Simulated assay, not measured.
Amino acid sequence: MPTRSPGVRPGSPPVRSTRRRRWRGPALALSVAVLLLAVGLSLAIGSRPIAPGVVWDSLTGAAQGQDALVVRELRVPRTILGIAVGIALGLSGALMQALTRNPLADPGLLGVNSGAAAAMVTAVAVAGVTSPMGLVWFSMVGAAVVSVVVYVIGTSGRGGATPVRLALAGTAIAAALGAYTTGMILLDSRTFDRFRYWQVGSLVGQDLSLVAQVAPFFVVGTLLALSQGRALNALALGEDSGRALGANVARTRVLTAVAVTLLCGAATAAAGPIWFLGLAVPHMVRAVTGPDQRWVLPFSLVLAPALLLLGDVLGRVVVRPGELEVSIVTAVLGAPVLIALVRRKRLAQL
């Protein structure tokens, strides 16, 4: 007769799954602690190190002088923007990987970054817009329009929208817009100068007024993203199984695409394209939580901004007294992660 391990009943959950459920709560608390540490380091470390006590007094208004001015006027807006952008990119990456069932998907898969870039260069070259506030709105519109176009193309024909069609449509639109953007910046030196700074991807030089303008997009996108966890879990079993479990496939795809557009569009418009964060964070999270999107999304919301702020702090330290832009840091750290994923994981079947 077949034997089984003592203490294991038929139909009981796997030991690994049980351990994951047991550690989810403590791991989330640890992630929150890492985020708080990253916020503290972001406020204290830079070309001009500031003691933690002075940072606290500056935040409470008890301290005055140059250090307090640096904290309140420069580092607080930079840190808040880093938190918002990190949340947006982390959630966008998790949503895209769940929606397309592709472990190597990232927020740029639907052409959001390319749409924002194309709209920005058009605003500078044609309309003469140069202010950060104006460019944010143009970038948001470009991201939204491209997302709608990609979804329309992906849903055309028999069978409706599928992960493969959405991914291929996004790749095609991104390639076309990339060629358009390159042509525009080569024809206009002023556009090239403005785009060159934005293209790097940075948290430097932004103030709270910019954060306030894009905050509604971050808030709505975050709420939409967190509301899709259960439906995405159902879709992970396949469309037919998802429908049988009560999930509305079309509505889930639309709401997820809207959330990605709002989050990634706002993040790209405010800070420029920042690569690999949306790709790497969901994989790190699933190593702890498993594939349950009800946990993947909250973990990504906490861990992504922590890693982005830590990368920003690292960029301030490695070339002091200068700074290395955070997108360069994330690219240097994220490229090995991508290589490891390609070597260790099978790509999703197309």
Rank of each mutant, 00 (worst) to 15 (best):
A234D: 04
L226R: 04
D240S: 15
R194N: 06
V220Y: 03
L232R: 06
G229D: 12
D240C: 00
F192E: 09
V204N: 15
Q199I: 09
A215L: 11
V200G: 12
L203T: 02
V220P: 11
A231L: 10
L210G: 04
T191N: 02
N233S: 06
R196H: 03
Y197K: 03
W198E: 14
M184R: 15
G205R: 12
A215G: 07
G201V: 00
R194Q: 13
D188V: 13
V200C: 07
Q206T: 09
L203G: 11
V219W: 11
L235P: 13
R190A: 14
V200E: 03
F217L: 15
G229Q: 04
L224C: 10
L223T: 02
D240N: 07
L187I: 01
L203E: 09
L224S: 13
D193S: 12
L226Q: 12
G205H: 14
G229K: 08
A212P: 03
G221T: 11
T191S: 13
L237D: 13
F192D: 05
G221Y: 01
E239R: 05
S189C: 01
T182E: 15
A215N: 00
M184L: 14
T222Y: 05
I185L: 00
T222L: 06
Q206E: 11
A234L: 02
L224N: 05
V211F: 14
A215D: 03
L226W: 04
G221Q: 04
S227L: 02
R230L: 12
L232Q: 01
G183F: 08
N233M: 01
L187P: 00
L232G: 05
I185S: 06
S209N: 12
G201D: 10
D188I: 11
F192M: 15
F192K: 05
L210D: 01
R196D: 09
L186S: 15
S227D: 07
V220Q: 10
R194S: 13
L203P: 07
D193E: 14
S209P: 00
G238C: 10
F218G: 01
L226H: 01
L223E: 05
L187Q: 11
Q206K: 15
A231W: 10
G229M: 09
L210P: 00
V200H: 07
A215I: 00
P216I: 08
L235H: 00
V214S: 09
F195V: 15
Q228W: 04
E239N: 03
R190V: 14
F218I: 08
V204Y: 12
R230F: 00
V219Y: 02
G183L: 09
R194L: 15
F217S: 09
L235R: 08
T182V: 05
L187T: 11
G183T: 05
V214L: 13
W198R: 12
R190I: 06
A215Q: 04
Q199E: 10
V219R: 12
R196C: 02
F192W: 12
L237I: 11
S209V: 04
L223K: 06
A234Q: 08
S202A: 10
T182I: 02
Q228L: 15
L232C: 04
G238P: 06
